[in-house]
Design a protein around this nucleic acid. Structure first.
Lengths: 211, 211
DNA sequence: AGATGAAGTGGACTATAGTCCGTTTATGTG
DNA sequence: CACATAAACGGACTATAGTCCACTTCATCT
């Protein structure tokens, strides 16, 4: 995956590689990669030690030995940092959905896959509640802008279209995901305990898993 | 409703009136009432003129001719101020639910009342989207702490218990209200337009209005 | 009316998110 | 290797939410 030029001299400004011409994102510079790793490590440690809400961005920058500007340039804002930390676990779940065993993965009827997804998602959610809350609620609408959200929505929309032909699957998927918001599940679990909270959401979704 | 003492001398510290002994909240002092009115008027004007997000609390305090401390003492935070401004319209809807004509008010079957509620609530929501967003999203979990939210939840829970005997109505009501969050409806309407957004939420709730 | 203390007031102060921009550094070129 | 350029850096700076507390005002009691 090297950056070799092909053919003779080309009429491009010096410094522009084939990669940029082909539309690929530029490779991350070495110092940038190093700093990203330092920040993620420091953030993970601080969040674990002190709790997500009690760690300021200044503290993360200081602990990572990095300037504040760097921190924000790379992760956008606090919710972006949280989202970056969640990335790995997210990919795991996404992998299981795309190519794992049924009923979460392909092969089972849409209705069953839907409840399997909700169960798996709630496992993920309750395993990382603090980070998820941070990534979803730091700014209005943040939840819907995260890349992972699009994935969940698309998955649910596809299943809905299969389970209930003729329904308006895309916005319905959006609406079905609403109760899975970290903030909502936090309140629900605080009020009724995790078990009843899970069951309520399951019941809600179940109503739409069958015809 | 005066504050006359009954009977002879009583062994209470001076300054403690019958009202406080009876557990009623103390009456608001005249200057406090004056300032509350000034703040609400100034906030309503500024929010209307400049948009909710572009008005700082300092600006509200200055426009109201009131100190910052007063502003926060009275309304808690920005979301509290927004909630106070919504109060009147909320009461209207609450009144219609409690004693208005069916199907929103009492008299219709629970399922019909449920969809009537969703429709009416969405009217209210889209009529005050900015304020509602502010009151719900300024801090995590804010939505669930607002007094009005408890009302909506209780109403929905009662209807659910009637429409689907045996279901775990309280947490289910919570979950059914999740898609009605201002932040969620904003995203939904931005993506698909208000009409489809409304229809999707209606469809979701409808699935639980019948047995 | 005068005294009294609880309630209310206002603005200086703190904490923190996020921006800006002059400086530094990595990378590819000749 | 020396150079040019774009990317990355970092910390001073701004904006804003929310706290704190010394001082003032109101309502009530005598």
């Amino acid at each position: 995956m090297s950056d070799l030029e092909i053919g003779g001299p080309r009429s491009v400004p010096s410094g522009e590689s084939l990669r940029t011409l082909v539309g690929e994102p530029p490779v991350e510079r070495a110092d940038a990669a190093r700093n990203r790793a330092k920040v993620l490590a420091a953030a993970a440690r601080l969040f674990r030690e002190r709790g997500v809400d009690d760690v300021s961005m200044d503290a993360v920058a200081a602990a990572a030995g990095v300037g504040k500007g760097t921190l924000f340039r790379r992760f956008g804002d606090k919710s972006g940092l949280a989202a970056a930390l969640l990335d790995e676990r997210e990919r795991e779940l996404q992998g299981a959905i795309l190519s794992g065993p049924p009923p979460l993965g392909p092969g089972a009827p849409a209705g069953e896959r839907l409840t399997a997804f909700v169960d798996a998602y709630l496992d993920y959610l309750f395993g990382h509640l603090d980070l998820l809350r941070m990534s979803e609620t730091s700014s209005p609408g943040a939840r819907y802008r995260i890349g992972a959200y699009r994935f969940w929505r698309l998955h649910v929309a596809i299943l809905l279209a299969e389970a209930r032909p003729g329904c308006d699957a895309d916005p319905l998927a959006h609406a079905l995901l609403a109760p899975l918001a970290a903030d909502h599940m936090t309140a629900l679990a605080a009020g009724y305990g995790e078990a009843r909270a899970r069951e309520a959401v399951r019941a809600l979704v179940l109503g739409h898993g069958r015809g």
